[in-house]
Design a protein around this nucleic acid. Structure first.
Length: 369
DNA sequence: GAGGGTCAAGTCCGT
DNA sequence: ACGGACTTGACCCTC
């Protein structure tokens, strides 16, 4: 395998960023909208939607095409509004994980012919190009995190073919957004998990040559909370940048909050080869940890003792309620940008951003020392 | 408008 | 063996 040459790195001293994932939640006082319906419509306007393939299949060809075109127009508009919104935020918040359903059913047979039509193609190409320009003009860093079906190695040849096709679809989206050339251009990436235990790490590595150059240059791999922990995923660090999920690591290691100066973190940083890394953070649900001190890191052993199994603890909170976790994120932001995986989305990322902005200069000085 | 059944796809965990 | 979780519960039909 030939090593991709870094062409357009986001320097490691680039202004740190964090952002939310996929979905926008409307903020504001309850009376900001005249009716519940108006609030609901404002939320829909800011978010991508989709249709079931069963429904599309049930429609006559003309209706099917109309339905799909409506979905695509809506999704391109909603994504543009999301990117616009992020671009208007303070620089520390200029990062967004894009939902995977921009083009519903793109890799499903029922929609393939419709997307291939020149008119539809033009709609998609123009819309995505425009969104990419807005992102770059606004210094918004973009990513995808395709779903659990996106496995590039499987014992089931069909699953593997579908998974690679799904990854290639995301790479195509990135290319249409203007990130189709070079090693993680502008920090763009498509992040997946290793997948099945069998064929595992070796299977993942063996599948890399089957990917297009664009997909290969955008791919990243994330540690998970059960089988492919940080140490295991680092076996791929020579070939694929590693996305460090601090919460997954806490769960998988049964309680370790990894420090920025940990040797494994250095290996993660090196795996990005000149591009500023992205990491993930989340914290266990507020309800589970009722009464937990917000200024102390969650104690895995104590929580297990209290009857919570690891799966409960893996579930994400609404907000980034734990100030000790947020302070740890601030220290890690000396080397990485962060995707905030909290159920309240932009409300959570804006909250942690404000908290971190206040302490970040100190953390960066500490890191430089 | 509310409520319930359904949804393309892979894999693993918990019961 | 099957439901739930994951990345994100949302869509669609019926009442």
């Amino acid at each position: 395998m030939t090593d991709p040459i870094p062409t357009d790195p986001i320097p490691t001293d680039h202004a740190p960023r964090l952002g939310f994932c996929c979905k926008f939640i409307l903020d504001g006082p309850p009376d900001a909208f005249k009716t519940l319906k108006a609030a609901r419509e404002a939320t829909l306007r800011m978010n991508l939607t989709h249709a079931t393939m069963a429904h599309l299949t049930s429609l006559a060809p003309a209706a099917r095409r109309a339905k799909l075109e409506g979905l695509v127009r809506h999704n391109l508009g909603a994504l543009e509004r999301q990117v616009d919104w992020v671009a208007a935020r303070p620089p520390i918040e200029r990062l967004l994980r894009i939902a995977s359903n921009v083009l519903p059913g793109y890799t499903h047979g029922i929609a393939r012919d419709i997307y291939a039509e020149p008119e539809m193609r033009r709609l998609v190409v123009d819309g995505l190009a425009r969104i990419g320009e807005i992102a770059r003009a606004g210094a918004v860093r973009l990513s995808f995190h395709p779903g659990p079906f996106c496995v590039i190695a499987s014992q089931n040849p069909n699953a593997q073919r579908n998974g690679i096709e799904e990854l290639e679809h995301h790479a195509e989206l990135m290319a249409m957004l203007g990130y189709g050339t070079g090693w993680h251009p502008h920090g763009a990436h498509i992040n997946i998990h290793v997948g099945a235990r069998d064929p595992g790490i070796a299977g993942f590595r063996d599948s890399l040559p089957r990917l297009s150059q664009t997909a290969r240059d955008l791919l990243t791999v994330e540690n998970d909370e059960n089988f492919f922990g940080l140490d295991t995923v680092l076996e791929l660090a020579d070939a694929v940048p590693v996305v460090l999920d601090l919460h997954h690591h806490w769960v998988e290691s049964r309680g370790e909050y990894i420090a920025p100066d940990d040797p494994r973190v250095l290996r993660v940083r090196e795996s990005w080869r000149g591009v500023r890394p992205v990491a993930h953070i989340s914290v266990s649900r507020e309800g589970l940890l009722d009464g937990h001190a917000p200024d102390a890191l969650p104690d895995f052993a104590a929580l297990t003792e209290a009857g919570h199994n690891w799966r409960d603890l893996a579930a994400h909170s609404d907000m980034m309620w734990n100030r000790a976790v947020n302070a740890l994120v601030a220290r890690h932001m000396a080397w990485a940008d962060f995707e905030i995986e909290a159920k309240s989305k932009n409300l959570a990322s804006a909250g942690i951003a404000a908290e971190i902005a206040a302490i970040l200069p100190a953390a960066r000085i500490e890191a430089a020392a």
